[in-house]
Computed example of a mutant assay.
Amino acid sequence: MSFIVRLKNDAFGKAARLAGLRSNYALAKKMEINRSTVARVICGDLNPGSAFIAGALHALSPMQFDDLFEIVGAHDPDVRDDERLPSVFQIRRGIRSTQRLPGWFTDRPERLLDVVRAEVSNGRGEKAVELLAEVWPLVADDVDDHVARRLHECGVYLTSVLPTSPLMARACRLGAIVLRARGLHRLAAAQGLVALAVHREHDDPDAVASALLDLAETYHADGRMHRAIVCVDEALEVYGPHQSSVGFARTLLLLGSIMIETGRYDSAVECLTQATSAHERLGNAVSSAEGRALLSRAHRLLGDDDAASRDLHHALALVGEADHAEVRRLREVSAGVRQFTPILA
């Protein structure tokens, strides 16, 4: 058996804070090594070498070697140090410090599944899910799609282990956002369905409605309009006992806009009339104006120009002629020049 030196992350972090070194930049300057080396050791990309050890003992004096480091057995002497799996703790500490994915992950993202499986085998599945929830938002636009696909695989595996975990639902929702933005709609839908199932299991109406609307957005982006409509309809049913809620009113606006998009103009008028009335009862002038502008669009498409003009006039009266930008936006929504995007949060 061979041996390697491993950083004691908790002790190292505490010692650094006590020394007033609260950033990788400050640590690297005091240790007289590259900042990237500090970040890589902290996040588990790299085992501490002689320069790191010497720098740490100098910067964090009077701490001793045993305070900051440990010697552990490397069971496979043929495996290079940079091939060894970092712990979930190391990865989470690293990404919190750098706010980016570890270099090894973008190069070999399949290793994260090995890390996750190791964590689950040690009875720490929730920790692995927490890691997944932290990693998803760090997937930058310029990162290759295969990284997102490997993260999705991690989610699928963890779902089989923790199928009813609320944290799993959160990780899946974050994953769906990233996957949808990349055009990976089928994978995004799979993530969204998991989140929906978890929230239904916990009988959380608000969370169920939110998950349904997220799923509708994914189906809409994928051009599966029928499924999008079904999800929005289900969300309205969830809101059913609370038809005076803002969520119910906004969801009606969304359904009306989808009905316009799919050529179902009579249904659009019905939905948007209800939505506008709901928003007026809630005293929400901006959303009421949006509903009126969409109603104007639906009536115009039905050939009823008089009703269309009345609806647009009411919409503009709600915001006031002085708000030129909003007036222009509502006119464009009415004319179909601008796509309506409801705020559902």
Results as ranks from 00 to 15, higher is better:
residue 279 H to D: 00
residue 212 L to K: 10
residue 218 T to D: 09
residue 306 D to P: 02
residue 210 S to E: 07
residue 278 A to N: 14
residue 267 S to A: 15
residue 207 A to Q: 14
residue 303 G to H: 06
residue 311 D to S: 15
residue 222 D to K: 09
residue 220 H to P: 04
residue 325 A to Q: 00
residue 275 A to V: 02
residue 248 F to P: 04
residue 261 E to G: 04
residue 291 G to V: 03
residue 312 L to I: 05
residue 228 A to M: 00
residue 309 S to C: 13
residue 221 A to H: 13
residue 298 A to G: 14
residue 289 A to L: 07
residue 299 H to S: 13
residue 273 T to N: 02
residue 336 G to F: 08
residue 249 A to S: 07
residue 229 I to G: 02
residue 308 A to I: 12
residue 217 E to P: 03
residue 318 L to V: 11
residue 201 E to R: 11
residue 246 V to D: 11
residue 202 H to W: 14
residue 320 G to D: 05
residue 250 R to M: 06
residue 244 S to I: 03
residue 237 E to T: 00
residue 274 Q to G: 02
residue 202 H to Q: 10
residue 305 D to L: 06
residue 270 E to R: 10
residue 208 V to A: 05
residue 273 T to M: 05
residue 221 A to K: 12
residue 333 V to K: 09
residue 285 A to Y: 12
residue 262 T to F: 07
residue 237 E to G: 01
residue 239 Y to C: 01
residue 322 A to S: 15
residue 323 D to F: 01
residue 251 T to P: 02
residue 319 V to F: 08
residue 331 R to N: 04
residue 264 R to N: 08
residue 263 G to Q: 14
residue 261 E to H: 01
residue 313 H to C: 12
residue 307 A to I: 00
residue 313 H to Y: 10
residue 302 L to Y: 05
residue 305 D to A: 11
residue 217 E to I: 02
residue 284 N to F: 12
residue 275 A to F: 02
residue 258 I to Q: 02
residue 211 A to W: 10
residue 210 S to F: 04
residue 318 L to Q: 11
residue 215 L to D: 08
residue 259 M to W: 13
residue 272 L to I: 06
residue 272 L to G: 06
residue 274 Q to L: 07
residue 230 V to A: 01
residue 205 P to V: 05
residue 295 L to P: 11
residue 199 H to Q: 07
residue 335 A to S: 13
residue 247 G to V: 08
residue 211 A to N: 13
residue 280 E to P: 04
residue 281 R to A: 09
residue 199 H to C: 05
residue 299 H to F: 15
residue 216 A to I: 06
residue 265 Y to S: 11
residue 312 L to Y: 08
residue 295 L to M: 14
residue 267 S to N: 15
residue 205 P to H: 01
residue 282 L to F: 13
residue 229 I to T: 07
residue 265 Y to V: 06
residue 247 G to W: 03
residue 235 A to L: 03
residue 318 L to P: 06
residue 301 L to Y: 13
residue 265 Y to F: 14
residue 323 D to W: 04
residue 312 L to M: 06
residue 295 L to H: 11
residue 266 D to A: 15
residue 261 E to K: 00
residue 212 L to I: 08
residue 322 A to Q: 14
residue 291 G to I: 01
residue 251 T to N: 04
residue 199 H to D: 00
residue 278 A to D: 13
residue 326 E to R: 15
residue 252 L to A: 09
residue 219 Y to N: 03
residue 303 G to P: 08
residue 322 A to V: 11
residue 222 D to L: 09
residue 322 A to F: 12
residue 324 H to W: 09
residue 275 A to D: 00
residue 253 L to I: 07
residue 218 T to S: 06
residue 207 A to E: 15
residue 199 H to F: 05
residue 258 I to E: 05
residue 235 A to T: 08
residue 201 E to M: 09
residue 315 A to D: 15
residue 268 A to T: 08
residue 320 G to H: 04
residue 265 Y to W: 13
residue 304 D to N: 15
residue 250 R to C: 01
residue 222 D to Q: 13
residue 322 A to E: 15
residue 308 A to H: 03
residue 305 D to C: 04
residue 205 P to Y: 00
residue 268 A to K: 09
